[in-house]
Design a protein around this nucleic acid. Structure first.
Lengths: 261, 261
DNA sequence: ATTTATTTTGTTAATTTGACAAAATAAATC
DNA sequence: GATTTATTTTGTCAAATTAACAAAATAAAT
């Protein structure tokens, strides 16, 4: 049966479900690239996903929503729970860099809280992970709370993260790709109005491959969930692209059945 | 932030991660139908999924494997973690029938264990759920352990289950359907050798729709992961169907990329 | 009017899907 | 040994989809 290598007694803060946390991989689409919301602890070199504990009176979805909204100010986000991580290495003593980061953070706490908090962090945590889709243009990121810096980072520039958070991000991207056909990325990741090529670039960013412009446009328009508006005047010396928006009624139905790509 | 309706202190059994459990939806293919492994508590009318607690030294995957192997004797099963359930109603006091069942079970315990065990069961549990695919023909179900009866039940005959276990089963079926193209159902659910029509019936059972026999056969054979063997002699007055088995090397590659259906 | 970059539509071959029908098969029975 | 029977296997063909390129249309600025 189960091995019991280290039998650590389970400490916890009253009112909080012990041993459980929630982590969120928040996707946003900025400057034609997919970005993820990451946190950096001040005075350290450690980055982390936005996350938090689960309160005893709270549902997980609610908690994930709160985590995201406290950073972004947006409170109706598209949530997708994709995996629960439970590796025995999920504690702050496993990697040297994490341990050092923790010491720096502990030093800022009142003396009497340091020991208990440290003990909390060397327990193995089970973390249920969500990916979250939101319209980055609407977001006003709160850059600094509790000495944590919040930033949009593009997928190609993700630094080393705390614990197994890199693995979580990677798994989130794979989940995003796999579920793409059933996700309302048009509603959630795009601004109110957008150009066709912008929409295509989003698909390309998620799928990680080039799509034919002509074929993409024809396919999307045939699905019939885009409403064409006036053109976007950039001041450039070329034809202005049309702007499009989503016909929500049509789109919701299509997404429920799955948009084949 | 999080509401704290009922602030119950978190009790737990030493060595076990508090508030967390694992539940398994075990799929098997029997008599041309999909079945699920269910448990019935003796002397009650309550059915449940096979499940258990998470030990502090154990990974979740390992735990799910143990749960299944203790019931079936099989210890290399195909696991797929699909969701973590955290509703505030996930405790044995929520539904009257569950509560009565619990009382019956408690009565069988030694006096001194009754109160503590009851207190454990009225806490909200977070349950990470797996679906498991295995070859039902290999399984020798252990029908009775700890006063629990273990049975294969076909999807159309699933009774009312304890807690939110019906919801868990339904979500497992939906997950099975959605991930079908990436699941090695041929290796895991079918016996060593099988007929084409049997294989087709499996697909039909999962997808819940009729498939054209000719087209199915052509498509599968074109994929090239089936090896044809001798015919199956049933004694019936008709052409004997060929038996097929899986070419694992080819199949694994195809499943990794996704077999389109 | 011309330049320019981008959108939009066309075209075509190749492939896949869906629906149905016909042929082949082989064991058992008469 | 011919016949019956149920099932597998192959055939056909129209319709739809995909993939890859090419050409045309567009409109703002020069």
């Amino acid at each position: 049966m189960a091995k019991q290598k280290e039998l650590i007694s389970n400490l916890h803060i009253p009112g909080i479900v012990p041993s459980i946390s929630i982590d969120c991989v928040v996707f946003g689409y900025l400057e034609k690239k997919l970005h993820v919301l990451l946190i950096k602890y001040k005075d350290t070199q450690s980055w982390t996903l936005p996350g938090g504990f689960l309160y005893e009176g709270a549902e997980m979805d609610e908690t994930a929503t709160n985590i995201v909204s406290s950073r972004t100010g947006i409170d109706n986000v598209y949530l997708n729970q994709f995996y629960t991580f439970s590796s025995l290495d999920r504690h702050w003593k496993h990697k040297k860099k994490d341990w050092e980061c923790l010491q720096t953070l502990l030093a800022k706490l009142p003396e009497r809280d340091q020991k208990p908090f440290e003990e909390l962090m060397i327990q193995r945590y089970i973390s249920t992970a969500y990916f979250v889709l939101l319209n980055a243009a609407e977001v006003r990121v709160k850059p600094d709370i509790h000495g944590q810096l919040c930033n949009w980072i593009s997928l190609s520039e993700i630094p080393e993260l705390v614990l197994d958070h890199n693995e979580i991000v990677n798994k989130a991207i794979r989940a995003l790709r796999k579920r793409l056909n059933f996700l309302p990325i048009g509603k959630t990741l795009m601004p109110e109005k957008f150009t066709m090529s912008d929409f295509q670039t989003l698909y390309e960013a998620i799928l990680g491959k080039y799509l034919d412009r002509g074929n993409f446009q024809r396919k999307i328009m045939k699905l019939g969930f885009l409403i064409r508006h006036e053109k976007l005047m950039t001041g450039a010396q070329n034809k202005a692209p049309y702007l499009y928006s989503i016909d929500h009624e049509v789109y919701d139905k299509l997404v429920a059945e799955g948009i084949g790509f």
